[in-house]
Design a protein around this nucleic acid. Structure first.
Lengths: 336, 336
DNA sequence: TACGTTTTCGTAATCGTTTTCGTTATCTGC
DNA sequence: GCAGATAACGAAAACGATTACGAAAACGTA
C-alpha cells in the first residue's frame, strides 16, 4: 500500500503539503495541488483509514445497530432491505458500515463503547429495544445517531408512516363493506401504539364501533401467537368479518387456524397484513397489506446521518416520514 | 474513553508494561500483570481499534463481500441468513464485520484495496462473480479469505453439498414413481455444474434417461426466465411429469405459467425447488425442496477464517462441505 | 530600498498502541 | 563475594496521517 510519504517523495514536497493538497487546504498553490492530486491518483494512493481515524477521530465508517436480543434481526426481509439500502447509500457517499453490537467476544462493551472503539462517525439504530439503557446511552451521546421507527428527543428519526398506512387499510376494508373489524397487534411499542391509535381513530371517523374484545394482543413475526388470537376471535359470539394481523408473517399463523376451522380466505374471513414482504405477494390468495418503504427508509437514514456528520454545526434534528403503499391483494371480500 | 496512559498512571507503571500485561507478554511479573488487568477492567478500558490497527495491522475486523453487481445481495433470504450467522460467530470471537465493496464514494478502489484500506484481518467472500479480476486479485492476495459456494486454489471454502442435495431430490421423486424429469438450471456457475452433474449422474444410476430438451437454461431468482423455460417444456411432445427449478423463487414463475395452462400442482405437474427459504414452506401446496444449511455455512466461514487469521503459520486450506436437508412438501405426486 | 503583507511550504508534535532494546535489580553457582 | 544469567521494567521509536506554527519567498507600497 502506498502512503503519503511515497507521493511526497515522488512530488518533491513534504508530507504536510501532500496532506494539505489532498484535503483541499487553502495554503497550497493551485499548481502543486493539482500535481500532487494527479500523482496520488496515478500511484493509486488511498489514505490509511486507521491512521486517519487515530489522528482526527473521523473514520468514514458508520455503525449499524440491529438489536442482538430480538431474534428478528437482519434476516427479516424488512430489515435486510433497510440494511441493503443503508449500505448502498453510505457507500455512494464514501462511508463504510460496521455492525455495532454488545459484548464483542470476551470484552464487555456496551453499544456506545463499541461505537467509540471503532470510532464510528455515526450510528443508524435500525432495530432495538428503545428502553434498553445501553441504547439510550448511545442515543443521548455525542455520537450522531438516527433511529428507525422510533424518535428520541433532539435526534433525527426515520419513521414509517404507520398512521397513514393503517388508515389506508381501514378505509380499504370499509369500502369493501366491512363493519366488524378485529385487530391483532404486536408488542406495545410506539409503532404499535400509532397503528392502534390510527386504527381506532379511522374506525371512529367512519362510524365503525370496535368492541373491546376485537382488539387482541400477540407478538410480531410470531405465527403461533397470532394463531391463538385468531382462535379467540373465532370463539366470539359475534365474529368479525375481517381481521387485521400485526404483520404478513403473523397472518400465516392465522391462516392455519382458520383452515382448522374450515374457514377459507377471503370467503369465510377477510384478512389484511402489514409490511408487504415478498411472501405476502406470492401467497394465494395474494395478501392485502401495506408495504413499508424500507428502501427509502434506509436511504434516508444514511443520507440524513451523513449530512449531520458533515455539517454538525448547522444540523437540526428532524423526523422524516416515509410513506408506503397499499398492496391490494385478494384477501378482502366484498360485502354487500 | 480511557487509554493505556491512564491505567499506566493508575498503576504506577509505564505504558509499555501495561500493553505487555494486557497482551500477555512474558516479561512482566504475574502480580503486576494481574493488578494491571484488574484496574483496566475496573476503569473500563478498551484498546483503541484504530491505534492498534495502525501499529500492528491487526484490526479484529473481518470484511464480508457481497457482490454489488448482482442484485440478489443481502436481502435474499439465503444470503441474509449467511450474513447473520457470519456476524454472530465473528462477534462471539471478538471480531467486527465490515462490508467490502468497490468504488467507495469518489475513490476508485477495488476489493483488495478496500480490504487493505480498512486493514481487514480477513474477508468472507459470500457472493460474487468469481471470474471478476478484482475478486481474483483479492482471493489470491496475502489476505486470508474464505469463499462460499466456490473454491479457489489453496484457499478455504465452504460448500453447500449440492451433489448430495440434488441426489436426494432425484431419489425422492424417483421413489414417487417419476421417470420423466426435467431440469431448469441457473447461470452456469460451478454450483450449477455440480447440481446438473449430480442430477444427470443420479438419473443414470437409477436408469432414467433424460432427453436433451428436458434440460433448460434460465436464471437464478428470476421467475420470468423460469416461466419461459416452463412454457417450452410444456410445448414438448412428451411432457415431463416433474420439473426441477433452479431455486424456490424461480418456481413461482413456473407456477404462474402452469396456472395459465390450467395445470395444477401437483396433480398436473410435480415440481421441486432448491434453497428451502421460508416462502417455500408457506406456499400451498408446500414446496418440496432442499434446504441449504445457510446458518452452518456462515458459522463455518467465520470460524475457519478466524482460525486461519490466528494461526497463519500452521494453517492449511480446507474445503468444508455443509449438508442441508430435504424438505418434503406436497408438490410431488405419487405415480403408479 | 525598506518594510509590511501575503502566499506557499516545511518542521515537528500528535493521535494510542506495540515492540525493540537497554537498564536495573535479583538470583545462581562456585 | 563475584561473574554471569535471568527477570522485570522503562525509554523511545515506530505505524500513517493531520495541523499548529514558523520560515522563506514573493509581492506591494511608500
Amino acid at each position: 500500500m502506498i502512503k503519503i510519504t511515497d507521493i511526497a517523495a515522488a512530488c518533491g514536497v513534504s508530507r504536510a503539503t501532500v496532506s494539505k493538497a489532498l484535503n483541499g487546504a487553502p495554503d497550497v498553490s493551485a499548481e502543486t495541488a493539482k500535481r500532487i492530486r494527479e500523482t496520488a491518483r496515478k500511484m493509486g494512493y488511498h489514505p490509511n483509514a486507521a491512521a486517519r481515524a487515530l489522528k482526527v477521530g473521523r473514520s468514514y465508517n458508520i455503525g449499524v445497530l440491529f438489536s442482538d436480543r430480538t431474534g428478528g434481526g437482519i434476516s427479516h426481509e424488512y430489515f435486510s432491505q433497510i440494511l441493503e439500502s443503508v449500505k448502498a447509500e453510505a457507500e455512494r457517499r464514501g462511508y463504510d458500515i460496521t455492525f455495532i453490537s454488545q459484548n464483542l467476544g470476551a470484552m464487555h462493551m456496551d453499544y456506545y463503547e463499541h461505537a467509540k472503539y471503532r470510532s464510528c462517525d455515526g450510528v443508524v439504530i435500525a432495530s432495538a429495544d428503545f428502553q434498553d439503557p445501553a441504547i439510550i446511552r448511545l442515543a443521548t451521546s455525542e455520537i450522531p445517531t438516527v433511529t428507525l421507527d422510533y424518535s428520541f428527543d433532539s435526534r433525527t428519526s426515520i419513521l414509517s408512516d404507520n398512521v397513514r398506512g393503517m388508515e389506508a387499510l381501514v378505509r380499504f376494508v370499509y369500502e369493501k363493506g366491512h363493519r366488524r373489524i378485529a385487530f391483532i397487534h404486536g408488542e406495545m411499542t410506539t409503532v404499535t401504539q400509532k397503528r392502534l391509535a390510527s386504527f381506532k381513530k379511522t374506525c371512529a371517523l367512519l362510524g365503525i364501533s370496535v368492541p373491546a374484545d376485537y382488539i387482541r394482543p400477540a407478538y410480531y413475526h410470531d405465527p403461533r401467537s397470532s394463531g391463538l388470537a385468531t382462535r379467540e376471535l373465532l370463539a366470539l359470539s359475534e365474529r368479525p368479518t375481517c381481521i387485521f394481523y400485526p404483520d404478513d408473517l403473523s397472518f400465516l399463523g392465522g391462516m392455519t387456524e382458520l383452515e382448522k376451522h374450515g374457514i377459507s380466505v377471503p370467503d369465510g374471513m377477510s384478512v389484511v397484513g402489514y409490511d408487504g414482504i415478498l411472501l405476502s405477494q406470492v401467497l394465494r390468495p395474494r395478501l392485502t397489506t401495506y408495504r413499508q418503504g424500507a428502501e427509502a427508509m434506509g436511504r434516508e437514514a444514511s443520507r440524513s446521518l451523513i449530512e449531520e456528520i458533515e455539517h454538525r454545526d448547522t444540523w437540526l434534528p428532524q423526523q422524516i416520514l416515509v410513506e408506503g403503499e397499499l398492496l391490494e391483494g385478494s384477501t378482502v371480500r366484498e360485502i354487500d
